[in-house]
Design a protein around this nucleic acid. Sequence first.
DNA 1: GTAATTTAAATCGTACACGATATTAACGTA
DNA 2: TACGTTAATATCGTGTACGATTTAAATTAC
Lengths: 152, 152
Amino acid sequence: MTIDTSPAQQIDPMEQMICFDLYAASQAFTRVYKPLLAPLGLTYPQYLVMLNLWADSPLSVGEIGHRVSLESNTLTPLIKRLQEAGLVTRTRDPKDERRVVVALTETGRTLKARADHVPLCILRATGMSSDDLIALQRNLRDLTAAMLTADG
Amino acid sequence: MTIDTSPAQQIDPMEQMICFDLYAASQAFTRVYKPLLAPLGLTYPQYLVMLNLWADSPLSVGEIGHRVSLESNTLTPLIKRLQEAGLVTRTRDPKDERRVVVALTETGRTLKARADHVPLCILRATGMSSDDLIALQRNLRDLTAAMLTADG
DNA sequence: GTAATTTAAATCGTACACGATATTAACGTA
DNA sequence: TACGTTAATATCGTGTACGATTTAAATTAC
């Protein structure tokens, strides 16, 4: 293959890097979410877990992990913090003692009302139209899919 | 603008979230970078720092931080690891003893040759044309700028 | 020229991420 | 039914992120 092998470093190293822009956008979201979630006592990953439980409770650790793309090594301590905050319970599934079932407590369920305004705040913070956001979302998903199937 | 204020939880909670797609895309990049950077003994954030030093050495901790959008609380331990790996030196600036100047060692400079293929591998893994990538990059930067100026 | 302020790094504590390994339960097979 | 395998969590170690505080040097104000 013939490839442009001109040194990358002749350009501003950060200028050319799509991954850096992704990282920056991701961080920008984190910064917007933080003041919205702090009054609820949630971090952003915790909010993602609660979102899924609000939609569907109970869920096993593995089911949550599948939805938020995290594994037990990250989720177990995170969910334990939610438990310490009184938002969820963790119990072994009697049908399959390997599974840990996470369920909302009444406190956890109640918190939902206080979180309902968050998505709209985020949407407005983007300053983008729904159509543009959906287009961007599609681009990001295509990109992600391509990256994950890349043969390296 | 007219906004759909229907409760978020009636849709798949993850489906609607642009921030989740950003996060996923970012993680996908991390996964593609890891096998490329592991042979060099670098993590992705460390690679970002090295990229800047390869372009411009020496740099102060603050200058590096400005370029990679990280602060000393993250950079100091990261740079100490690069120092332990023999890639950089850390010295106080005699002109301003508050500043710590990070400079490449000969080993650090030499590593550049082994990293030169990385950007091209990444570009190919995206499966996107340069034009599409640039367009996406522009979208992401607009989005980031809007988020950071949002009045919350 | 000293005190108050600002600035640059570092330190500390909390919370992700994630590879590797361990643990325990369920399952499949002889 | 004992045994090897698979599956679901948990644990451990390393490395970011980042808010809050600390330290020390430089700058400003007076």
